[in-house]
């Protein structure tokens, strides 16, 4: 029998590296799980490189179950160093495969991570729009 949570998930959950706040974040994304009431926030800081703009730093705050915390941590690693366009392609499936597997009732926790990411990217473009108007 497989244990309820994978070894990888337990490791992420018990020692997440990416939680915390980015005070001067360029965008913040959030997602909530209406079913169980969990909340996740993703902070993104970007950096302009020649010809492209990449995600330099990303952090999360998650109030939720072990799967929610682990998937939050994973998604941060997955998008770090990527351009926003590349990051937008990251899905819950990528998150899940990083953790080997999730219990069936916990699949939605990985949706949470994807939603928070999408929200952050959406807010980023909004923020950028405002900035360029000011100029």
């Amino acid at each position: 029998m497989e244990p309820y949570y994978s070894k990888k998930l337990i490791k992420r959950f018990s020692n997440p590296k990416n939680f915390g706040l980015i005070k001067d974040a360029d965008a913040v994304g959030s997602a909530g799980n209406p079913k169980c009431g969990d909340i996740m926030k993703l902070y993104i800081k970007t950096e302009k490189k020649p010809k492209k703009e990449v995600i330099k730093n990303v952090k999360f705050h998650t109030l939720g179950c072990a799967a929610a915390i682990a998937t939050s941590d994973v998604i941060c690693d997955l998008i770090k160093g990527k351009t926003l366009k590349e990051a937008a392609k990251v899905s819950y499936k990528d998150v899940m495969s990083e953790l080997d597997y999730l219990p069936a009732v916990k699949k939605h926790c990985s949706f949470l991570a994807e939603q928070a990411l999408k929200d952050a990217i959406k807010n980023y473009s909004k923020n950028e729009g405002k900035k360029s108007k000011k100029k």
């Binding site: 949570y5 337990i10 959950f13 018990s14 079913k35 169980c36 009431g37 969990d38 109030l63 939720g64 179950c65 072990a66 929610a68 915390i69």
Partner: peptide
């Protein structure tokens, strides 16, 4: 500001068995 299943799992990792009424569990 915390969720029950996370507490129970952390306790379990410390060798303590407990339970929660949280939805996530």
């Amino acid at each position: 500001f915390v969720e029950g299943e996370s507490i129970v799992l952390q306790l379990d990792l410390m060798g303590i068995a407990a339970s929660t009424g949280s939805a996530c569990s």
